[in-house]
Design a binder for these strands. Sequence first.
DNA 1: ATCGTTAGTTTCAATTCGATAGTAACACTT
DNA 2: AAGTGTTACTATCGAATTGAAACTAACGAT
Lengths: 147, 147
Amino acid sequence: MDNENISSDSCPIARSLAFAGDAWSILILRDAHGGLTRFDQFRKSLGIAPTMLTRRLATLTEEGLLEKRRYSEHPPREEYLLTAAGRDFLPVLFMIGEWGRQYRGGGKLVRFFDAENGTEIKAVAVDEVTGAKIGTRPIRMVMPDES
Amino acid sequence: MDNENISSDSCPIARSLAFAGDAWSILILRDAHGGLTRFDQFRKSLGIAPTMLTRRLATLTEEGLLEKRRYSEHPPREEYLLTAAGRDFLPVLFMIGEWGRQYRGGGKLVRFFDAENGTEIKAVAVDEVTGAKIGTRPIRMVMPDES
DNA sequence: ATCGTTAGTTTCAATTCGATAGTAACACTT
DNA sequence: AAGTGTTACTATCGAATTGAAACTAACGAT
């Protein structure tokens, strides 16, 4: 998909997708948010081929969503921790999840609760300024000028 | 990525990704939200190979995010319109965009404004119940029981 | 000394992707 | 009437990516 050109695109969605535009990366991020840090934990959780996992972890690390930390010198062992950029991906995960819950919700699904007051979390995207749900008010798109 | 098994997964994220887990699909959805409806509009906007586009449009249609509508009988011509499920994908697009804006924001970016009051839209994900931003409060995950 | 664990690499076949060219069904122009 | 343009594709084929399986390195435990 020629990620080089897309990264210089003026669309922030395209730019995000240039690195995390595949399902494995997003699933790795999901698991990282769930607390997994190690190669084998990801491998077992995802059933991913080790070649894929190596490459995806490397990309996510290069792109600054994960960072490698050595947790043992002998033998040398690394674990992968979320960076701030990786943690800030959580809202994306929740919105993807919310869509899936609504439109692919058959059978049993994992559920998330607010740990403090016990209510089930229902993620919605709102405009921080108006407080309105995204999609409920007309939107005007402004292209950057060429200057 | 064996979408069959993943669709029966208990994770709503995995289920969403089983169909829209590739960058082209998401970009098509983005353009559909931007008002594009026809094959050639998508092709030119995305620079996608027609083979890919045919396949992606077919998948998105099968999965119920787009619907095909005949807009001309002679010659037979179809256009692709967003369904309710497709429109409800907008929050996902906005959150992906917001992440890109924050972490891949160099250079000029498209911007979105509330058409009514002119303020720039800043999409944030919140828990509809508590009103708190997603990620600012501890979360408890509950697996579905096996019964 | 052998087994198990962790984090990979190597190899290779199968699938998918992307680019290019071609097709079908018309409308429009000359 | 013939040629050109538009739209929505399909066909073909080489290149790149993916997935499965086996193997390796560096230990620690028994």
